[in-house]
Amino acid sequence: MIEVIEARKRYWRRSILQGASFTVEKGTVTCLIGLNGAGKSTLLKAIMGLTPLTSGRILVDGEPIGPAMYERVSFIPDHLTLPPSMKLWEGLRFMAEFYANWNAEKAAELMTFFRLSASDRIGNLSKGTAAKFNLVTGLALDTEYVLMDEPFSGIDMFSREMIADVFASDLIEGRGVLLTTHEIGEMEHLIDKAVLLSDGVVVREFNCEAMRVAEGKSVVDVMREAYRA
């Protein structure tokens, strides 16, 4: 389980996070929801140790962030993370060389699924193709948790469908997934748990199915309540 405990972050005099706390369990898809500037991306980066918190703690299966964690948690940001001069096959080779849990077979499957050409240069990829390649590098790691920042941002309809298919596949099964997205409508049926962030704090944290059954509300309905109140 990933535990975010009282996470606080300040940039100059502006508070981005003001004591956000929530958990991400294995085998569930958790969606971090918030308006622009709510601190969603900052939280993902903080979990990955890419930006320090002003205060608060983050634990992965009870342990603080450390180098070994990167074999257990993978992060798929909304932009490329390999040098633009590399070709796709070189990027895959880089991942295989540096990560013990790299699954080359899975990577080949995903490359075929997304119809990516290994000889293309990373710097020449369109936004949609770059997002797909990002998913390859993130999902071909046999990690227990996957973090995704806006996987659908600026991507065409057919590519979105392909990426959404990944969520329904065994590539995600059993893993703990934490993602941020603005396309809640499209993703709602794939989400198990929603965490609503507002002004740097978690205002609602609920199981989507339980909410539907108990109160007859969709995630969007709860969002309206939380953000329009």
């Binding site: 180098p67 070994a68 940001p77 932009h79 993370t81 040098p83 633009p84 880089f94 013990a100």
Partner: peptide, 17 residues
């Protein structure tokens, strides 16, 4: 800098920074 920020990957390598 640029469209592809390699520092993300470098900092996420499972070895001492």
């Amino acid at each position: 800098l640029g469209r592809s920020t390699f520092i993300y990957r470098l900092l996420m390598l499972p070895s001492a920074r």
